[in-house]
């Protein structure tokens, strides 16, 4: 079970800030493919992954990052701090 978090417009498009996902996905990209199959709003949110950033266990990661042992995965648009 992995906690999946969504921020900013990704959260708005999917309609929730977080959810627990039962998955055997090997990588972030595999998890995205599983989520896209759920409902059209997931497919819409993940339509262009180049517009998204991802963090695994609160560290910036890539879509090729393995998920073995990961507890938390977050998807969000490019950050705008400062």
């Amino acid at each position: 079970m992995i906690d999946v978090l969504y921020f900013a417009w990704v959260r708005e498009r999917i309609g929730k800030p977080r959810e627990a996902v039962e998955t055997q996905a090997a990588t972030v990209a595999d998890l995205v493919e599983e989520l896209k199959k759920r409902e059209p709003r997931y497919a819409a949110a993940f339509a262009d992954v180049s517009a998204l950033r991802v963090a695994v266990d609160q560290e910036l990661a890539d879509f090729s990052t393995p998920l073995s042992g990961a507890r938390e995965v977050a998807f969000f648009p490019p950050m705008t701090g400062g």
């Binding site: 921020f7 900013a8 417009w9 963090a55 910036l60 977050a74 969000f76 648009p77 490019p78 950050m79 705008t80 701090g81 400062g82």
Partner: peptide, 22 residues
């Protein structure tokens, strides 16, 4: 801070709301 700290800004104007793009 601008592009490596996980903050996101949304602006609310009389025309509606919009996320600030990086």
């Amino acid at each position: 801070l601008k592009s490596r700290a996980p903050f996101w800004k949304k602006e609310y104007t009389s025309d509606g709301a919009e996320w600030v793009a990086a």
